[in-house]
Amino acid sequence: MPHDHHDDHPHSLLPSDPALRVKALETILTRKGLVDPAALDAIIDAYENRIGPKNGADVVARAWTDEGFRAALLEDASATVRELGYYGRQGEHVVAVENTPAQHNMVVCTLCSCYPWPLLGIPPAWYKSDAYRARAVREPRRVLAEFGVFLPDETAVRVWDSTAEMRYLVIPMRPEGTEGMDRAALAALVTRNSMIGTGLARAPS
């Protein structure tokens, strides 16, 4: 297909209205010395590149392979993950909840989108959507089914509602057939959704 819209913009592309409003706030706060633009770049870089579900997956793989770590994590997750360097904004009060054949755990934030950032990064759009926030509590099994998770009837579903003070990390069940796998290989099976409770850990291929 020919590239038929004319490419030679006479001026720079105008950012969207909200983008300009954000720029305005940043300019005003920077002028007042309330904000350091370099610090903003560092925050964005961290959340785009260094902070994400692989941190949480590392924690889960450790819990699967080290009984002492698992016990410490269930006892005081905030302190335990802090020792691994996974701390910061929205990571102050983390509780680890472990899936078992008797109980599947699932996390929501009905207020807004509280989420354990240092362990899972920025929440996905669906986690922030009204639909998920409203329905996770009301009809968790139906929501799980939409994520492709079908649990046996004897497995109870417990939904944890996050707050600004308390955030949850789900420890999914370790998949069958993973005996003898090392921690790094196990961590690769731990998906983001499995740590929110809307998925299960992947089976080894």
Binding site: P15, S16, P18, A19, V22, K23, L25, E26, L29, L34, V35, D36, A39, L40, D41, I43, I44, Y47, E48, G52, R89, Q90, G121, I122, A125, A164, E165
Partner: peptide, 26 residues
């Protein structure tokens, strides 16, 4: 992590204000 650059900017602005003690997270 962010669908649009301005999502990242407004997020970072808020986190920065919180980290510098100007905006309690609760």
């Amino acid at each position: 992590a962010f669908a649009e650059p301005w999502h990242a900017q407004v997020f970072a602005l808020t986190v920065h204000l919180n980290e510098t003690g100007r905006l309690p997270w609760t």
